[in-house]
Design a protein around this nucleic acid. Structure first.
Length: 575
DNA sequence: GCCGTTTTCGGCCCGACTGTTTTCAGTCG
């Protein structure tokens, strides 16, 4: 069972307990444990086998017993009991905005509703308004909620949300002549997917800001509009929220709306220990207000250094901040090159020269052209002959261009048996070798893991491309045992890629953090197939930051001569 | 259900908003 699956089950139990009306702290405990499990750098089954379940924050005696049963048998009697008491469909009602556990239970018990459709029907028939505690307005609100659930797009990728949010921020800044406008929420923390776009503005007249917001040309429909907040549906189908407040509250509000919720809970606890209460309006000590116009003021009052948004997931960042052990996170400006880029020699659309020019424009010192190998079957991969021709072209462009050095690499396919798609004689002539899996992604854990390990044993392989093979929202990761891959990478010195393509982000943040702990060499690459996608490398940087990576862990922060040293001095074959 | 430099029992994060209420419950972030 994967960590995510275990976390899902724990959350399901939490939902069921809430609907049952158990004390809220019980379900809170399950949610806390779920978040811990999800953030684990190792597979929970390993921790279980080591008998260390109790080490997981939020897992006590009772949960240890349940997790033990779950991991041993794949089943959980307690969950089955709960599901006998509450139909699964009722949990689904929690997805309707405005319906929480109490209302879900009410709808189920009084109307027999066990699906969103049931609720929709009852609402249209006017049956909801007759229920205790609900009225006509609630009925309308729930009906609207049902509608949005049935038509809601799922979470969108960071790569899709980012430019849209940026456009909105710029439009607001222009309209208000005001620089204190920011995208907040999961977008600012750089999460791989985004629910809706949250924005914050601080200005002298908040009501003016919300009025400007709902009048933006991208707005299709105004959902709600008040003096301090507004919610709209954009023409592209996304929802966007704006909060507007006075300048003196900007720092505390920025902190508050950036989240995560878990991080904020932990901060408030810390405040409480100091006899303070913390909200988006700042701190309160008795009847005295402590305002925080800047975000760092919030942390300073708690005796902490400012914590970068990417770390704010309550995964140990607060303790690290208290101990002065926050990482010095890698930044985009630390990158000196991109080591995984395609051109029109294989399945890219831009020429070597255009890609080189674009890379120079980005301020890079070097760029590796890594087109596919022929065995991929698709993508117009290069054989030995075409590789020679491409080398000549790259040599010509290196002659032509100052200020950037183009390396010839390859993204060589790791075949189903773990052998590489080019013989060693060819690989050793190349400056750099990225080895990746595209085929046979559904092999069982043992087969696909061995395949990857075997490739890493080759002294010619410098980087493993997109190690898990996942496509966010489209395809789950392969069955590969990444913990073993990380161990092998630490042994062989092979770099693992942080693929920055927004639909990959692979390795993900949790694995990056594990890699950093193990001292594994990482490399942030765009995997661009056109000049315009080179800039997507920023999503990889953000993901690496979420994995606590410093520039010292990232191969392509090295200057060219150091990179060349690394490439020629790679640790020898491990037998 | 978890957890402990006030506690092994009694706490557990905070405030706004909304709609239904006449003092509050539920939801949300």
């Amino acid at each position: 069972m994967t960590n995510r699956e275990v976390a899902e089950l724990l959350r399901l139990i939490a939902d069921l307990l809430e609907i049952k009306g158990e004390v809220v702290y019980k379900s809170l405990a399950y949610r806390r444990a779920a978040a811990s499990v999800e953030a684990l750098p190792q597979d929970i089954s390993e921790i279980w086998q080591a008998g260390s379940l109790r080490q997981i924050p939020g897992v006590g005696a009772a949960l240890e017993k349940k997790l033990d049963e779950l991991l041993a048998t794949g089943q959980l009697g307690y969950l089955r009991e709960l599901q006998e008491q509450v139909p699964v469909g009722v949990v689904g009602l929690l997805g309707i905005p405005g319906v929480g556990p109490k209302t879900a239970r009410l709808l189920w018990e009084q109307l027999g509703a066990v699906s969103v459709d049931d609720v929709a029907r009852a609402a249209r028939e006017g049956k909801l308004r007759a229920l205790p505690g609900l009225g006509e307005r609630s009925e309308q609100a729930i009906l609207a909620g049902v509608h949005s659930v049935l038509h809601r797009s799922t979470r969108i990728s960071l790569g899709t949300a980012w430019p849209i949010a940026n456009g909105l921020v710029l439009a607001m800044r222009q309209a208000l002549n005001e620089s204190s406008v920011e995208a907040v929420g999961s977008l600012r923390r750089g999460r791989e997917t985004i629910g809706d776009i949250d924005m914050l503005v601080a200005c002298g007249n908040p009501a003016e800001a919300t009025a400007v917001f709902v009048a933006l040309s991208d707005v299709a429909q105004v959902v709600s509009h008040g003096p301090t907040r507004a919610t709209v549906m954009l023409k592209n189908g996304l929802q966007a929220d704006l909060r507007a407040l006075k300048v003196e509250h900007y720092g505390s509000a920025l902190q508050y709306f950036t989240g995560s919720k878990e991080h904020n809970v932990a901060l408030r606890k810390l405040a409480q220990q100091r006899g303070l209460s913390l909200s988006k309006y700042g701190f309160r000590e008795g009847d005295r207000d402590i305002l925080c116009p800047q975000e760092q003021d919030v942390y300073a009052v708690l005796g902490l250094p400012w914590i970068p948004p990417e770390l704010r997931e309550d995964r140990g960042e607060i303790t690290a901040a208290q101990q002065g052990l926050l990482p010095d996170l890698v930044e985009s400006s630390d990158l000196r090159g991109d080591l995984h880029v395609h051109t029109d020699w294989s399945d890219g659309v831009s020429s070597v020269q255009d890609v080189a020019l674009a890379a120079r424009q980005l301020g890079y010192e070097y760029l590796a052209i890594t087109d596919h190998s022929s065995g991929l079957g698709v993508g117009n991969g290069l054989d030995a002959e075409r590789l020679r021709m491409q080398r000549a072209e790259i040599d010509r462009i290196n002659e032509l261009l100052d200020g950037i050095t183009i390396l010839q690499g390859v993204e060589v396919e790791i075949r189903a048996d773990g052998s590489l798609d080019h013989p060693d004689e060819i690989l050793q002539q190349l400056d750099l070798v990225v080895a990746s899996l595209h085929l046979g992604m559904r092999q069982d854990t043992e087969t696909i893991t061995r395949r990857l390990l075997k490739a890493m044993e080759s002294p010619h392989v410098d980087i493993i491309g997109h190690p898990s093979g996942r496509l966010i929202g489209q395809r789950d990761a392969s069955n590969v045992d990444l913990e073993r891959v990380l161990d092998m990478a630490a042994q062989t010195g092979t770099a693992l890629e942080v693929n920055a393509s927004p639909n990959r982000l692979d390795l993900d943040d949790v694995r990056i953090r594990r890699a950093v702990e193990l001292g594994v060499q990482l490399c942030i690459n765009s995997d661009a197939h056109s000049t315009s996608m080179l800039g997507a490398i920023g999503f990889g940087v953000v993901t690496a930051r979420r994995g606590w990576a410093e520039s010292s862990s990232i191969l392509n922060t090295l200057p060219l001569h150091k990179l060349r040293e690394w490439l020629s001095g790679r640790s020898p074959l491990v037998s």
